[in-house]
Each structure stands twice: as structure tokens, then as C-alpha cells.
């Protein structure tokens, strides 16, 4: 009897060990287990809200009232909504103008910072400043700079005798558009500049020396060496920059709340206004979902554009 119990215990122990051992040696299962926590986080905090948003877009849920599935009604309604189309136009204008200028100034700054300047690290730190300040704070600062009465820009220009009266930065639709774009550019440049600077630093100085000896002038070195070697990084940086700009909310909301007469409403701010302020959760969600195709297009563009260039494939550099 005793002996039987003993052997039973023993076999149970062996079984446990072998189960653990099997787990240990099964790389697929082990890999799956290690992946699980991350997958869970992604599911709960990314996939679920996204799914919920898409679902809300097909309902007429209002704040405090459960809604019903209404199919594409929200989208049909938006399709005929001039303000929605205005916000789409604004978003495109905002994204394209801001991105192009951010790229141009960012690249220029990166090229400057890549030289052997005195106080190099100090200058680099300064360039990063707009990025460090919380967006809401910088938006408030710009709001003040753009004040219709006490704007420091208007004051300076008037003092210099170039203007008679203060500029109405945020009161006039086109001025307001230009003003928020300027604020976004100010805020977005550091990201572009510092990332491109990092890219520039991966280019071996001896390539420039070789090109110099080959007879290339400064412009030819930029055009034939810097630009092609920087292209993969430019593609990544600009994709992110476009995504951030397209979905911008904070700057606009603090400075103009989409006004005047919806001239600065972006899709994100309109969505928030309709959903949270106006209570029409379904409609707001539909506006947000309408951004997805555009964002997806940007991501796909970068995915195909970013695929390792042929010259990057195979082997090492040295």
C-alpha cells in the first residue's frame, strides 16, 4: 500500500517536471507566453477603443442615452455637412503647409547643427526647447502672442512704425489659419530637426571628403550624398510628422476652439466638439473614424516608401 502511494507521488512529480521541461523546450509556446502581456495591453488600450470608436460611428449614442445601430446614417449626414467638409479642407491645409515648412526649416536647422559650431550641444538643447514645453503651455503662450490687443508682434511692428493698428491674428479666418499653422510649425520643428540631425550624423564624413576630392561643390555634395543617404530617415520623420499634424487637437483647441466661423476647425477638434461638447457621441465618432482612411494612406505611403532601399540590402557597411 505504502509502496503504491510512493510510486504514485513519484510519477506525479516526474510528470510535472516533464511538463515544465516540455514548455521550456517549446520555443513557439514560450514565445507566445512572453508575447501575451504586450498583446493584452495592445488589445485593451488600442484595439478596444478603436473598435468601440468604429462601432459608435454606426450608432446614434448621445451622452447619457444609449443609442441604436443606425448603419451609415452618420456618414451620410456628414457627407452633406458643409462644416465637416470645411474641417477636412482645414485639416489638409494645416497638415500640408505645416509639414512642408517644418521639413524645410527642420532640414536646414539639422544641416546647421551638424556643422562644427561653437556651443554645439547648447544650441542643440535650445532647438529642442519647443518640444519639451507642454503643448498646452506653448499654445497658451501663442494665444497671448496672438492677442488682438496686446500682441507682442503687433506692438513691435507698431513701435517700428510699420503698422497703424494691431493685427487681428485669431479674429480673421485666414489670419487665424496662418497663426495656428505657425504655432504648429514652431512646435513641430525640433522633432524634425533633431531626428534629421541624428540621420546626418550617421553619414560618414569621409564620404564628403571623397566627394570633395571627386570635385563636388557644396550643393552637389548635398544633392548627391546627403539627400539620397538621408531619404530613408526623411521618410520616417515626415510620416510621423504628418500623422501628428493631421491629428492635432491641443494647439487649436486652446487657441481658437475651431473659430472664427470654423475657419480653424480640424477633424479632431470638430469631432471633440460634436461628441463631447455637443453630446453627439455617434456623430463625433464618425468624424474621427473618417480620419482613418487618410491616416492609413499616410502609413501605407510610408510603408512602401520606407521599404529598405536596394542599396541598403545585404552585407555591412564596412
Amino acid at each position: 500500500m505504502v509502496s503504491i502511494t510512493g510510486s504514485n507521488d513519484k510519477s506525479a512529480a516526474t510528470e510535472r517536471i516533464s511538463w515544465l521541461e516540455r514548455l521550456n523546450s517549446n520555443r513557439n509556446l514560450l514565445g507566445f507566453l512572453f508575447m501575451l502581456p504586450a498583446a493584452l495591453v495592445l488589445l485593451v488600450f488600442l484595439a478596444y477603443p478603436l473598435g468601440l470608436g468604429v462601432w459608435l460611428g454606426f450608432t446614434d449614442v448621445k451622452v447619457g442615452r444609449p443609442g441604436h445601430f443606425i448603419g451609415f446614417d452618420n456618414y451620410e449626414w456628414l457627407f452633406q455637412d458643409d462644416i465637416f467638409w470645411l474641417s477636412v479642407f482645414n485639416t489638409f491645409l494645416y497638415t500640408s503647409v505645416a509639414s512642408v515648412i517644418k521639413f524645410a526649416i527642420g532640414l536646414w536647422l539639422a544641416l546647421l547643427l551638424n556643422r562644427n559650431l561653437p556651443f554645439k550641444s547648447f544650441l542643440r538643447a535650445i532647438v529642442l526647447l519647443p518640444f519639451i514645453v507642454p503643448t498646452v503651455l506653448s499654445a497658451l503662450a501663442f494665444w497671448w502672442i496672438y492677442d488682438s490687443q496686446d500682441s507682442v508682434i503687433s506692438w513691435t511692428l507698431i513701435e517700428m512704425g510699420l503698422l497703424d493698428q494691431p493685427i487681428d491674428f485669431l479674429g480673421n479666418p485666414n489670419n487665424a489659419r496662418a497663426s495656428v499653422i505657425a504655432a504648429n510649425i514652431w512646435r513641430g520643428i525640433p522633432f524634425v530637426a533633431i531626428t534629421l540631425l541624428a540621420g546626418l550624423q550617421t553619414i560618414s564624413p569621409s564620404l564628403y571628403e571623397a566627394a570633395t576630392i571627386d570635385g563636388a561643390n557644396e550643393w552637389q555634395r548635398f544633392r548627391r550624398i546627403t539627400l539620397p543617404l538621408l531619404t530613408p530617415i526623411i521618410a520616417v520623420v515626415m510620416t510621423f510628422s504628418v500623422l501628428f499634424t493631421f491629428t492635432d487637437f491641443q494647439l487649436i483647441w486652446v487657441m481658437t476652439r475651431g473659430g472664427p466661423i470654423n475657419a480653424t476647425h480640424l477633424m479632431a477638434t470638430l469631432s471633440y466638439q460634436r461628441a463631447i461638447i455637443g453630446g453627439a457621441l455617434g456623430e463625433g465618432a464618425a468624424i474621427a473614424v473618417a480620419m482613418i482612411p487618410f491616416l492609413l494612406a499616410a502609413v501605407l505611403f510610408s510603408y512602401f516608401g520606407l521599404q529598405r532601399q536596394k542599396w541598403q540590402q545585404g552585407g555591412r557597411d564596412d
Binding site: 569621409s206 571628403e209 576630392i213 571627386d214 570635385g215 563636388a216 564596412d318
Partner: peptide
Amino acid sequence: PKQRDIAMVFQNYALYPHMKVFDNMAFS
């Protein structure tokens, strides 16, 4: 350098990685 009529071979070769061998040689 370009007026000195010299050519230099570098320690790390300094080949232009984005150009084919032909283009590397044809660059100058």
C-alpha cells in the same frame, strides 16, 4: 582639392553606398 588633380583612397574606402560600382567610379 578638385584643382589639385589628385585622387585619394580612404582607409574605410568611402564608397558611396547608394551608388552602384559603376556610378561610384563615374561620379567624378
